[in-house]
Simulated scan of single mutants.
Amino acid sequence: MREPQSDTPRIHVLGVGNLGRLFAHALANSPNPPPISLLLHRSSLLEEWEQAGRKITITTNGVVNSIGQFDVEEITSASAPSTPVSNLVLATKTINTLSALRSISHRLNSNSTVLFAQNGMGTIDETDSQVFTNNSTRPNYLTCITSHGVFDTGPFSSVHAGQASISIGRSLQRPPPTSPSTAQYLIDKVLEALILAAKEYPSEELLFLQLEKLVINAIINPLTAILSCRNGELLDKGPIVKVMRLLLQETAQVIQLLPEISSSDDPSVADRFSTQKLEVKVLDVAEKTSKNTSSMLQDVRAGRQTEIEYINGWIVKKGREQGVECEHNAKLVEMVKGAKKIGIDELRDLFAGPGGTFGVADAIVDVVKP
């Protein structure tokens, strides 16, 4: 591997869980790797870094690749540097976004670029209202959708089990950023990192892709969490598929009312977010990942806080803003937050209407496995 040039802009990675490790590892393995700094938000991570031999280890198809070409900063330390951060990959969980950005907000400015490498929706709005409130000094925002599968095997060690792709682009910022041109460097570096298999998209299309990913997560993640099952098991019972349809009906209505969707002159945009089109996508992903355990179920089993507020919670919030009460999504939010575990019969009782029916969702059962 070639050594990075000293005048190459540095990329900082904040959030060194599985996704942050994958980004750092991929960037370091690119043909012209930039200097990379790992930002550690607690002292115990520095101990784990030493324990890991000051390397990130990623195993792919049984092949182990360890790289140590990283600088490390403990941002909670009194001696932490205050030099500007030009390019930041934010790979924390959505629930930690605000605290993570506040810890280095004094090092970010209008010439900085922040890549939100996270699930869910709503963190950028919160960041604007609670961290970077002044548009003249607000960083450039990038967002991405990651379909790679990565799981933890120890301190700074992960397995890249599901090799897939990343969709990346500029976020729709309103008002527009003051220095938009500075964002292209980070986009290009992510595109050059072949392990990530990234593709750049225009802002509007990237938003549409984000919404489709949100819908998939909003159906599969919470249902597997409360039923304590693998993704494919959602397709095995009629009542589960009917509940999925109730959630999709609410979610499709909310999305179609979003200004970015409702203002489009292209009729295919609204059709893209119809209940039927979204259902096809959800069922396809559930089938393709049938043996997987969702990240939300993993969090529930580990007693960790989930990202439900930025998935189904976002749908409920946007629905209320538009006068749509999303009672089924709201019910899921409370159940996941309460770590509730139920069976098929209880699911039917909780979501079926009077007489034990599911309304329109009862009309179509052809996708249910025999």
Rank of each mutant, 00 (worst) to 15 (best):
S294K: 06
N312C: 15
K277V: 14
V324G: 08
Q276R: 15
E325M: 12
Q322N: 14
A286W: 05
V282P: 02
I311N: 04
A302D: 12
N312H: 05
G319H: 02
I315F: 03
A302V: 09
A302K: 14
V285N: 04
E309L: 15
K281N: 07
S295I: 01
G319K: 02
K317R: 13
C326D: 05
E309F: 13
G323R: 07
G319V: 00
V316H: 00
E307L: 10
M296Y: 05
S295H: 03
A286L: 10
V316M: 04
G313C: 05
A302R: 14
N312A: 12
L283Y: 04
A286M: 12
W314L: 06
V316I: 12
R320W: 06
G303D: 11
G323T: 10
R320A: 11
T289Y: 02
K288E: 01
N292R: 12
K288H: 04
K291V: 13
N312Y: 05
V285T: 10
G303T: 09
D299C: 03
K317V: 02
T289Q: 08
A286F: 10
I308S: 00
S294L: 12
N292C: 13
K281S: 12
V300Y: 03
Q305P: 04
W314C: 09
V280F: 08
E287M: 09
E279V: 10
D284L: 05
L283M: 09
A302E: 10
E279P: 07
K291C: 12
K318D: 10
S295T: 07
M296P: 03
R320C: 09
G323V: 08
G303A: 07
E325F: 08
Q298D: 09
E279H: 10
D299N: 05
K317H: 08
R301H: 03
V324T: 14
K288S: 03
C326K: 05
K288M: 02
E309I: 13
V300P: 01
V316R: 01
D299S: 03
E309Q: 14
E309G: 07
K281M: 11
M296L: 08
S274R: 12
E321M: 14
R301T: 06
C326R: 01
L297E: 01
T275W: 06
V285H: 02
Q276C: 12
I315D: 03
Y310V: 07
L278F: 09
A286H: 08
K291L: 14
V300H: 01
V300T: 09
S290K: 12
Q305E: 15
S294Y: 07
S295F: 01
T289C: 10
D299G: 06
V280Y: 06
D284C: 05
S290I: 00
Q298E: 13
L283W: 01
V324L: 15
A302F: 09
G313I: 03
L278K: 03
L297H: 00
G319W: 00
D284V: 00
G313D: 01
E309W: 10
W314D: 06
I311A: 03
M296W: 06
I315E: 00
E321I: 11
E279T: 15
